[in-house]
Design a protein around this nucleic acid. Structure first.
Lengths: 371, 371
DNA sequence: CAAATTTTGGCAATCGATTGCCACCGTTGC
DNA sequence: GCAACGGTGGCAATCGATTGCCAAAATTTG
């Protein structure tokens, strides 16, 4: 059949050129063992391999050493704007150390996460970066067994995984403090999926800081999105309206939900920020160019990716490092989607409506679709 | 030193379990050769390997067959919103055939493209998908030598590369026809980098269709961006203002340039669409939620990625397929960033200013801040 | 029933790099 | 002058799957 020999030079070729044994070539080319090669021989070998444009065959090295310098990266969906900067950070850090990333998407499906990891595993990946884990993702623990793993942007309950996450709690604290400082008391929330750590943590923080700030909600007024996207934002906004309890601001669990909410409210003649203040989370690209420009929490996605990659390489190259849990700081970005309830409205004409949404008539008709 | 044996079962283990030779296992597990194995033996082997949760060692197979079922994907920058859907398309198609993608970013730097490919090559990639090529990219031809390669979204002059691109010309024809139908005659353009096929083709189409439509430009009024981003869009908009020639619309080579242009014009009190109509290209995410919502050309990024991946697999698995060049159709999406010059202005009050930008008095006052 | 064929499956070489072990070399010290 | 030693570098086994070749077994054919 086809000759396997690929035209590419091998160590044997270099060895023949220089007139030494292949093992000497191998040692010379490997920084960890080249101390055992005299410097003049080193030179000759370097020159010979450059002349032939020699590149070691990764498969052979991989077979022998059981190391591939390849990291599996699993994300829910690369087209969600939060992931590209994370991936970019991962790539940049990996490239720096001579590693590469293999990517897989799961669409948020736990089963597909399992499939993805099982597809990656036989390729001999040295480590795994999961941006797709669920909260309490026992399955993730199982499939990642035996592979250095770090979760990024999200976390599981399992402390065995290293993680790099953002300070969600501080983010929501800042958001609520900001809204409160603008005079908002009745602050609703569009929460993210509670099966995901970010969704859960942001909602918890919303509840906790609402109380701490003494915001006058007897019980949290929230609607729960089933996914972090615009459509769910729209649905949840509708749900808040149906719920009938008054609010003047909505703190959303991320920017895309906020965008959806703004759209849905607008359909009902409720304009942001005039009639309702809305906040996002993530400061995604174009968040500043939307209308209104989103008040949101800036988050260091690129840094998160970078650090996750650094962690994983550390775990791979230095045995028995203990799991670390990095929390990246966040920042508040105030733009035009939030408005003071107390200050006179902007130049914009029209009556300054300060009354909460849903404040008229009977505010207690049950909402139809709970879930 | 460390035992290489990884705990993972090998063919030898399965062979021992079943009581046959490893070569039989290999044949049984390979669809191309399993006709040589009786069905009852097949069953036993399948069951045994399932019991042990056997996964073939990719490195060993790769070493022997010189095939890795791995595709290198090189993009300028994954954080540019056009690339994620392309990559997603690639991934989905590859996964379907049991392939995976290794990703690399170049930041539009030709040298880094070379480095990326040279980093990918020793990993035994079976094919290369380049979303990063320059027009007339001789270097790309050189580095991709011997590897099945397809370019996506962009193309080079080299017809040896298969390519999957969008119908740029039709896109710009539609844009200009649309603007002309709204009464615009003086249509400027913010062109993309001419070193990239998309930038070059869109500009050429702008020139050509301007003439075909009989738009009254004696010579094209264009400013050339050095990159496809908002900052360059802003700079080019300023440049158009400084040029001092009148225009009522600006056709931009992509959405990000358009977003930048809108911002820059607004800084000068020139509002879109009231004072100037602006169009983009690509219909990127959120283009519909911007203010104004972008009139643009929709482009099938996901499809392009999908097809590129299908092409590359075809090239790999069926020797000597000839290069193909696929052109995907585009669509015109009319939103609110373009406005009729002839029809009465929208409900919006205010005088309907129909006079071109730069048309008043001395249109040649230098702008202050050049940068 | 023997011969011809077809199935079935074992043997062993092979892909290319790595690495433990050992041998050889020249140098130094006693 | 001889043993000890550190520095070099060769030998060969090894990683795990693949596959051309061949032989044994099963089947068909004459």
């Amino acid at each position: 059949m086809r000759k396997t020999r690929n035209g590419r030079p091998t160590m044997k070729d270099i060895a023949r050129d220089v007139g030494v044994h292949v093992s000497t070539i191998s040692r010379a080319l490997n920084p960890k063992s080249n101390h055992a090669v005299s410097s003049e021989l080193m030179d000759k070998i370097k020159r010979a391999s450059a002349r032939r444009d020699y590149r070691p065959n990764a498969a052979a090295a991989m077979l022998r050493t059981n190391r591939s310098r390849t990291i599996g990266v699993v994300v829910p969906d690369i087209t969600d704007p939060v992931f590209p900067p994370i991936i970019r950070g991962i790539e940049d850090a990996l490239a720096h150390h001579g590693y590469v990333a293999i990517l897989a998407n799961t669409d948020g499906d736990a089963r597909r996460q399992t499939l993805a990891v099982e597809a990656l595993r036989p390729r001999g990946i040295d480590g795994l970066i999961l941006a797709s884990v669920m909260r309490d993702d026992a399955e993730a623990t199982r499939i990642a067994a035996g592979i250095p793993t770090v979760t990024v942007s999200r976390s599981t309950g399992d402390p065995q995984f290293s993680s790099v996450v953002h300070d969600e709690d501080d983010g929501f604290r800042r958001i609520l403090t900001h809204l409160a400082s603008l005079g908002h008391r009745a602050i609703a929330s569009i929460a993210g999926p509670q099966t995901i750590s970010t969704g859960y943590n942001r909602y918890s923080s919303y509840v906790r800081h609402s109380e701490l700030l003494g915001l006058g909600q007897d019980r949290p007024l929230a609607s729960f999105a089933r996914a972090f996207n615009e459509m769910e934002g729209e649905r949840c906004a509708e749900e808040l309206l149906v719920a009938g309890r008054p609010f003047t601001a909505v703190a959303c669990a991320n920017d895309r939900l906020a965008v959806g909410a703004i759209t849905a409210f607008r359909r009902h003649g409720i304009h942001c920020p005039h009639d309702v203040s809305i906040t996002g989370f993530n400061d995604m690209p174009l968040a500043d160019r939307l209308s209104p420009a989103l008040t949101t929490v800036s988050v260091q996605h690129y840094q998160a990716g970078l650090q996750a990659a650094e962690r994983i390489i550390d775990m791979i190259e230095n045995a028995n490092v203990t799991p670390t849990h990095i929390v990246l700081p966040v920042g508040l970005i105030v733009r035009t989607s939030t408005r003071s309830l107390t200050r006179a409205p902007d130049k914009e004409a029209g009556h300054a409506d300060t009354s909460p949404i849903n404040d008229n008539k009977n505010s207690r008709h049950k909402r139809e679709e709970e879930l």
